[in-house]
Design a protein around this nucleic acid. Structure first.
Lengths: 209, 209
DNA sequence: CGCATTGTTGACAAAGTTCAATTTGCGTGG
DNA sequence: CCACGCAAATTGAACTTTGTCAACAATGCG
């Protein structure tokens, strides 16, 4: 392993994360930079009425807590919550900033990760503005299948409740239930409590063009 | 003037921008970094159906074309169009990257500008998800008044057509017309073709909490 | 078995959009 | 200076989409 990478890893603390644990909460000061090594987390923002506005999945290799690298660390904008157990590497503000100062490549990587995030937000905005509830739900379902799904002989299985899906697609749980039922009756998927088995993702993809 | 700043400015080209000129278009490669010196521009994204999705105003001091600083310059995500004449400073990719490599402070500023942009996008997302058409329209009107408005003895005047406002608030032009009429009849504002005179912004602010 | 969580279904309401028909405002050229 | 023509704005009415609410069913855990 190259010595720089060793130095970077040496400065990190390893922290285990349990399922459903909130890693940080919006409004908290940005004091740590995280790298998700194993597990899966969701980034979301709370609306003034207390609804969760899903923003994106985070998976192994994803970095979050970018604000920590700024000169003036502003309050965090979003909440990051694990969906299953795993672990993260954590750098405190001082060492994170020291590291990126020493290794410009790191800073460039962080920069490009932020612009990726930017792209995903713009995408979400377009999706909300120009797609129907049905298209958004189909999309979230397919995307989630890629990210949190397990392969099964008869399709891809995701652990997702109706309510979670509804949140992600920004749709009421009733609408979600109705659409999922319809898709089930058309044979696109099979529902069970807290779980969805995607049989023909292709046909769902065709719903959102 | 400190010598570093002189070096930065020396590397820039000055370019005049006419009203309504598109400075760059989404999908184009990110080849230049811009600093708006005078004038006003809008950043928006086109939806698949060709609607403009307004993202934010850009004013004097704002930097855009951030993607240019990345190692691999991806295609631009948004379109930036001037709304009135002004001028920008322009750096090509090579010199922009050379400058930020030499002056870490510049890079930090760019970084924090990007996170600002991020914050404004998240804000837009929350606004779309949790506010009514009325609240969004009131909000855009007040924000625009700050950014593009001129003070008048009897209020703040903006050059905005119903259609532009509708685009910005992501509302149909009919809804915009109806709401504006209502507000006019309540005395919050006065409409004329392509222009709006805000008489009591406070009362509009109270509409979007 | 009992209970909490999760999901379902129908009737209804609300918010916005669409469309077509008009009207208003404003610059241009005769 | 007026009439023409175009873009901007208005208005009402029907319509769509989605959310709301209430009642109920199913699932699975301890």
């Amino acid at each position: 392993m190259p010595p720089e990478i060793e130095a970077v890893l040496a400065a990190a603390t390893r922290r285990s994360i349990s399922a459903n644990q909130v890693i940080y909460r919006e409004g908290d000061p940005a004091t740590h930079l995280f790298l998700l090594v194993t597990g899966r987390a969701a980034r979301y923002k709370l609306t003034p009425e207390g609804r969760k506005l899903f923003l994106r999945w985070l998976g192994p290799g994803d970095v979050f807590g970018f604000m920590t690298l700024q000169t003036d660390a502003p309050p965090l904008l979003t909440t990051v919550q694990a969906v299953r157990e795993g672990y993260v590497l954590v750098w405190d503000r001082a060492s994170a900033r020291a590291l990126v100062r020493r290794h410009p490549r790191l800073y460039e990587n962080a920069y490009s990760a932020v612009t990726n995030y930017l792209a995903s937000l713009i995408d979400a905005l377009v999706s909300r503005a120009s797609q129907t509830a049905q298209q958004r739900l189909a999309r979230m379902l397919v995307e989630s299948a890629h990210q949190i799904g397990r392969a099964r002989p008869d399709g891809i299985e995701c652990d997702l409740t109706n309510e979670q899906l509804a949140e992600m697609a920004d749709v009421s749980p009733f609408t979600a239930s109705r659409l999922l039922s319809e898709w089930q009756s058309r044979g696109f998927l099979k529902k069970s409590r807290g779980k969805i088995l995607l049989c023909s993702p292709e046909r769902l993809v065709s719903l959102h063009f």
